[in-house]
Amino acid sequence: MDELLQALVQGFFVGSAYGLLALGMGLVYGVSGIVNFAHGDFVSLGMYLCFAFFTAFALDPYVSVVFTVPIMIALGALVYRFLIKPIAGRQLLMVIQLTLGVALLIQNGLMMVFGGQPTRAPSMIESKLFLVGDVVIRGAHLVACVVSFALAILLYVMLQSTDTGRAIRAVQQEPRAAALMGVDVGRVQVMTFAIGVGVLAIAAALLLPGLPIQPTQGLRFTVITLLVFVLGGMTNFVAIMLGGIVIGVAEAIGTIYMTHTLGQLLPYLIFVAIMLFRPQGLVWRS
């Protein structure tokens, strides 16, 4: 019983960060119709940037975010403007392959700079533990959860009640009309992609404490993000956060309760089942 509770709590906390990963993807997909297969490699890049700041200046990853976010935003804007935009609107396959190419570039760029050995960027709070009843809560997980939800709410409010947010939603819903109302659709697309990548810089720092990192891990994050993204019905913010928690909990329960293989397979089984039987995602509008 305690084990179950522990799994639920841990799954919830880690899952909220997964939700944050998928929010970035959902935002970009809604505005540009692009599924970015380099998503996880951007997360990886965010982590290695933190690692670089740690080795060079002994900065805590939570502090490095101040620098990594602007760097990643600028990078996202450049990638969209010069690589994705020229082929946006063409076949989906083209865009997927282009982002796979970008994934190779990031992953192996990291490999060349940092080497292939697993490494870590420690944070001061990573060994902090709290005991609530019989449940152990890791400080890093708590931070990840709180920041993820805060950021999700911030993004939501930004989308709902600022001019920029309305412009983003307008491009999502009716790009032609948005352009006729003076919204620079191209700029909104660059901007959302850049924001999406910037969010990943934060998510990277949240997932980093206690996690050994390796350049080849990007695909794994991409896949987790895709699972959550599909589970959440692709654009619905609340559903995406919920999807993150479902995947996080499924992962945690899977590793504790089932034989090793089935536990690892569980998130994918859920994903395939959702894809087939509820392609509109877990939550649907009435």
Binding site: L83, I87, L98, L100, L104, L105, N108, G109, M111
Partner: peptide, 22 residues
């Protein structure tokens, strides 16, 4: 001494080809 270089070059070629000769 430069692990990953060959995949990096693949990445460059893929991105280049898609942009220049779709």
């Amino acid at each position: 001494f430069l692990p990953g270089l060959h995949y990096f070059v693949y990445g460059l070629v893929v991105v280049g080809v898609i942009l220049l000769m779709p």
